[in-house]
Nucleic acid binder design. Sequence first.
DNA 1: CTGTTAGCGCATTCAC
DNA 2: GTGAATGCGCTAACAG
Lengths: 347, 347
Amino acid sequence: MAKGRVTVVDIANAVGVSKSTVSLVLQASPLVNEATRTKVMAAIRDLGYVYNRSAANLRQSTSKIIGMVVNDLTNSFFAELAVGVDMVVQSAEYVQFLANTGESIDRQREVVASMREHGISGLIISPARGTEAADFKSFVGSGIPVVLVVRNVPGAKVSSLVSDNHAGSFAGVEHLAGLGHTRIAFLGGFPDTAVFSERFHGYRDALSRLGIPFDESLVVGSAPSRAGGVEAIERAMLLAEKPTAAVCFNDAVAFGVCDGLRSRRMEPGLDFAVVGFDDVIEAKTAVPALTTISVDPQGMGRRAAQLLLKQINSGKVEAESIVSSVRLVVRQSCGAQFGKAERRMAQ
Amino acid sequence: MAKGRVTVVDIANAVGVSKSTVSLVLQASPLVNEATRTKVMAAIRDLGYVYNRSAANLRQSTSKIIGMVVNDLTNSFFAELAVGVDMVVQSAEYVQFLANTGESIDRQREVVASMREHGISGLIISPARGTEAADFKSFVGSGIPVVLVVRNVPGAKVSSLVSDNHAGSFAGVEHLAGLGHTRIAFLGGFPDTAVFSERFHGYRDALSRLGIPFDESLVVGSAPSRAGGVEAIERAMLLAEKPTAAVCFNDAVAFGVCDGLRSRRMEPGLDFAVVGFDDVIEAKTAVPALTTISVDPQGMGRRAAQLLLKQINSGKVEAESIVSSVRLVVRQSCGAQFGKAERRMAQ
DNA sequence: CTGTTAGCGCATTCAC
DNA sequence: GTGAATGCGCTAACAG
């Protein structure tokens, strides 16, 4: 059985037909006699034939594999994202080639190049920080569609799918206001970034829509990190009129806010919401008293894959950079009241 | 630029050498003149040449790709596992082909078949429930090494890497005893399974080693589920001499134990430890007052990959089923005392 | 419906 | 050091 790989020729000889006939059987072609078809199938099983995709790909110069690269597989968000992609990819008879970059730009270049060499017919990528438009030149030059997810890359002539920051913050404020709050802070983030601007304007627009006066002192910028969150909440709590709720810039900030509140002996009565886009799942499990406002990762993955497949099948790749945004959903993890966290944890 | 894919011939013509020379350059062969080498490299960049691995694989009938299939990518444990595999796979100049089965045996057969057709040179798999030894027949028949991780498949003539259940429970008991406990329960699990037996004996052996009398009433079996955990802790708490600590059969049971304790108003003073093997990460983040006893997923992934590569490189695949076990490590997530959970959560 | 004839792009002998 | 052949396993055109 182990004497050199068994090929179509072998099974053709065994059955007494030609290789092309076998090939047609393999492709489930309808132009082959049912009798010979079953004989071929039998031989395939008996001889332990395995299809050689390298050869097939070489011949048809197309591969039915789509590449998926994420910047941090360790983060559940991206794992879910990949699962979502997989769902539609698999139902379209493609196979997913999943790779992790661990936020390393060099590693990303390697895996992307490798995928390119393997002849993927499309790429979905959540780019590592530092990715440039030029990194996709090879693909756009060859008409291979690329869709960016989660993060955008300015200048790249590919489609991208990011979350709707403005609508997210907006929804967060609406949610907190719905709980009766009127002094809602906006915590964390560097004001000079595009994301900050989007999220902040969502916050502000929601306030004005709801008729809640905007108070600049309730906007406390900080590094978008856990430490930044601690700092932000501490500054906010120094105000004469303290906030009773907060929208956090992201999940890292939310962690920090959480820490800060605890070190103040869990100052009760402060609800807060997090607009999380990356690590939100982790935040949800580790920080019980949290309302997360985030995109459904699997859903985003599905949408990305659909977008990609549409381009693959139509042969039309997006010539211009187009970005779609996906609506965020408000999920109240375990209760809104921070002081109740403990009880709610039981779920 | 898009007029039919550019091949080695094109760049050979452009430089004025032969295709073989180009091929040698691509393989970084030392038998090529430095001058022509750089000229070739330049042409490669200018013409936008991309290496065609399908062709190369076909020619050399080997692929430098190793397959990794996990049964639940959504579970951080497996994501970490994959990352660990990736680390060593990548440093060995292989590429990882990662797939998720979502615990579906059919899906698993599909992805495994697909990988087989793509000519992977080795497979690491955390098998879905229901996997049979026959599922790997195609690989063992062709001398392609397979290593099972996390779960074993009885009868499969491949190597496997599972955690050391006995040592795990043993360490858990040692840990709890080190905190001063002597009435340590063993909660959850069906006594008629192999895993139960291993974990239970670890528990029992540790007690005897430590000179703690074994009390059968402290062993409370149940379904290895969350509901089972609730049931187990409730039964244990009916004892005249209540336990002051517990080793849980697995993470699901631990969740249930947690639930049960909360519904009893957080009966303070009960430490507990979980021997977790699959979902332990989730347990760790969501159940703060927990000592987890688990394998380091990345480390396990690295070991698995090393094991596989060793077999690939030596050409010797394990003929017999051999299982290696990996030592569990005790990690005290956030503190041991249940009543202190809240404070410790701040980390 | 089935067989025949050509390559797909590359790596590997061998000569030169 | 470099160039000319040859075939990996398969599929796409054509013939029959």
